[in-house]
Simulated scan of single mutants.
Amino acid sequence: MTAVSLRRAVGSDSRFLTDMVVEAANWNYSAARQRISVLADPAYRRYVSGWQRPSDVGVVATDAEGAPIGACWFRLFPSNAPGHGFVGVGVPELILGVSPIWRAQGVGRALLRETVSLARQSGYRQLALSVEHANHAMALYRSEGFINVSTPGSRETMVRNLS
């Protein structure tokens, strides 16, 4: 990975995190969704709405000039308003997005590892996520210890134990 730095996500990163939700949803260029349609989906909006709540934790990757290029974060959801990878109250759900030109260069792995470390330091015992079946990021998640716990529709819900 060349000239990439990681820093903690802060409240003023909400717009960039919104961009990364759209990137995460648009992993498949042949089936890319309009930004407005991604953000119209309540399940996607939940990942960024009201950022940064006290339990929201994340990491932003920046290039050599300090411009943000990717982000990974987690937040808690209630059972009546879950995200795509909800497994239970008290289990934060992770989302990861990387700008297209920075994909497959180790940025996602670095962000994921740092975010898992922060979740562990925060006292969480598990992290959950959701990924579409054909998304190549599934291999990244598996290689970093996430395992499939359910397969709703075209997605897999994965969990990583942190203890």
Rank of each mutant, 00 (worst) to 15 (best):
A81T: 10
R15K: 11
E156K: 10
M1L: 14
S150L: 14
P42K: 12
E23G: 02
G66K: 02
A71S: 01
G50Q: 01
V21C: 03
G66R: 02
V38D: 11
Y29W: 13
A104R: 15
T2R: 08
T115S: 09
F86L: 04
R155L: 04
F86P: 05
S117T: 09
V89K: 12
Y29P: 14
Q121P: 00
V98R: 10
I69Q: 06
G108H: 00
M138P: 10
M158W: 06
A61W: 03
P42L: 07
T157P: 05
V159T: 02
A40Y: 12
Y44K: 01
S37G: 13
I95C: 05
S79I: 09
A24T: 01
E65N: 11
T151E: 15
A104T: 15
A40T: 06
A40M: 08
V60Q: 05
A25R: 05
P68E: 07
F86S: 04
R155C: 07
F16P: 13
C72F: 00
G145D: 04
P82M: 07
L112T: 13
S130N: 10
S79M: 11
V131M: 13
L111R: 00
G153Q: 00
A81P: 08
G85A: 12
S117I: 01
N135D: 15
A61S: 00
R35H: 14
S122G: 11
N148W: 07
R53Y: 13
R109W: 06
N28R: 10
V60G: 00
L76W: 01
Y141L: 06
S14L: 10
Q105A: 08
T2V: 10
V131P: 12
A25H: 03
V149W: 07
A134N: 12
V57I: 03
Y47T: 00
H136W: 14
N28W: 11
V60F: 04
P42D: 06
N148C: 07
F77G: 03
E132Q: 00
Q121L: 08
G85T: 12
A3W: 06
G58T: 01
S14C: 12
L140G: 10
R125T: 14
P68M: 08
W51H: 14
V98M: 13
